[in-house]
Simulated scan of single mutants.
Amino acid sequence: MANASIPEQYYEAVAHHLPPEQPVGPKGGRPRIGHRVVVRVIWFVLTTGARWEDVPAELGCSGRTAHRRLREWEEAGIWDRLHVDLLGLLKRAGKLDAETVIVDGVTVRAFGGGEATGPSPVDRRKSGTKHTLMVDRHGVPLAIRTAGANASDHKQIVPVVLDYPRVKGTPGRPKELPDELYADRGYDSEGTRALLRWLGIEPQIARRKTPHGSGLGKVRWVVERTISWLKGLRRLRVRYDRLGVIVDAWTTLAASVICFRILHHECM
């Protein structure tokens, strides 16, 4: 049987946010496939990178059904709530330090194109997508935004910063924005620095055409590690889905899986 071993604790975290199971109506009919089975298939596709049509029948749910449910739950905001909930658990556990954030991006090929795609400047202008990640000082993913592969890096910083999550979990008002932001030379822009300072964020962005050895890499390396964790979830290595809503579901779900693994020392 195909391996689709979802941790029970992770399913419990997801189930807390899922809508009630729908019972069979008074006229009878085929019962709706249970949430646990669907989440198991979604986990299988996320971790193995399998196509929807290749989901094994023994998992108890077709790929099409799981695809529909994944979209329904994304549109209902369930994956976003799950992510923020796990960030709150990390904060209570002392594993979240979101005053300082680090931003970097990763480009993946988009077979068949779709929403938020563009010619990749690093892949012979083939269709691709760029994921811009914002992580905390420990590499915890705070937000992921998607754009075409040809989108300018420096134009992605402010949108991803505005996605900064308001994380509860400890006494006091949740922070609305970070205090400091680190990024590499690809994000060098005086306009971006000015906007960040206007928002109250001190930018630590390397400048182009300056010698290496600034020391910023001692802070920035954690985002590269998180990118490697993201690629460990094989559905994120290559984009097959054309719809932006599905891509957003995958990225938020991937962020929640990484948060869960950090919480339970599985990424350390």
Rank of each mutant, 00 (worst) to 15 (best):
A149F: 06
A149S: 04
N150L: 12
A151Y: 04
A151Q: 11
D153M: 01
D153V: 08
K155N: 05
I157L: 12
I157F: 12
I157Q: 00
V158G: 04
V158P: 03
P159I: 11
P159M: 10
P159D: 10
V160D: 02
V160M: 02
D163H: 11
Y164E: 00
P165H: 06
P165I: 05
P165V: 13
P165Y: 01
R166L: 14
V167Y: 13
V167F: 02
K168D: 14
K168F: 14
K168P: 05
G169I: 05
G169W: 06
G169T: 09
P171D: 02
G172N: 01
G172Y: 05
G172P: 03
R173L: 13
K175H: 08
K175V: 13
K175D: 12
E176I: 15
E176T: 15
P178F: 14
P178K: 14
D179A: 15
D179P: 03
E180N: 13
L181I: 09
L181A: 11
Y182S: 02
D184I: 06
D184M: 06
D184P: 02
R185I: 14
Y187W: 03
Y187C: 01
Y187P: 01
Y187V: 05
D188P: 08
E190C: 03
E190A: 14
G191E: 12
G191W: 13
T192P: 05
R193W: 05
R193L: 04
A194L: 12
A194K: 14
L195C: 10
L196P: 00
L196D: 04
L196N: 02
L196T: 00
L199Y: 04
L199N: 03
L199V: 10
L199D: 03
I201Q: 04
I201Y: 07
P203H: 07
P203W: 12
P203M: 11
Q204M: 15
Q204E: 10
Q204T: 08
I205F: 03
I205W: 10
A206L: 13
R207T: 11
R207G: 02
R207A: 09
T210R: 15
T210P: 00
T210I: 11
P211W: 12
H212M: 11
H212E: 14
H212N: 13
G213R: 04
G215N: 06
G215L: 08
G215V: 06
V219T: 13
V219A: 12
R220Y: 01
W221I: 03
W221M: 05
V223P: 06
E224I: 08
T226L: 03
T226Q: 01
T226K: 00
I227W: 01
I227M: 10
I227F: 02
S228P: 02
W229R: 07
L230K: 04
L230F: 08
K231V: 06
K231G: 04
G232T: 07
G232H: 05
L233D: 00
R234K: 14
R235V: 05
L236A: 07
V238Y: 00
V238D: 09
R239I: 09
R239L: 06
Y240K: 02
D241C: 04
D241F: 02
D241E: 11
R242D: 02
L243K: 08
L243I: 03
G244M: 14
G244C: 09
V245R: 12
V247C: 10
V247H: 14
D248Y: 15
D248A: 14
W250K: 08
W250R: 11
T252W: 02
T252C: 13
T252P: 03
L253Q: 10
L253G: 01
A254K: 11
S256N: 01
V257K: 01
I258A: 12
I258P: 01
R261Q: 10
R261D: 03
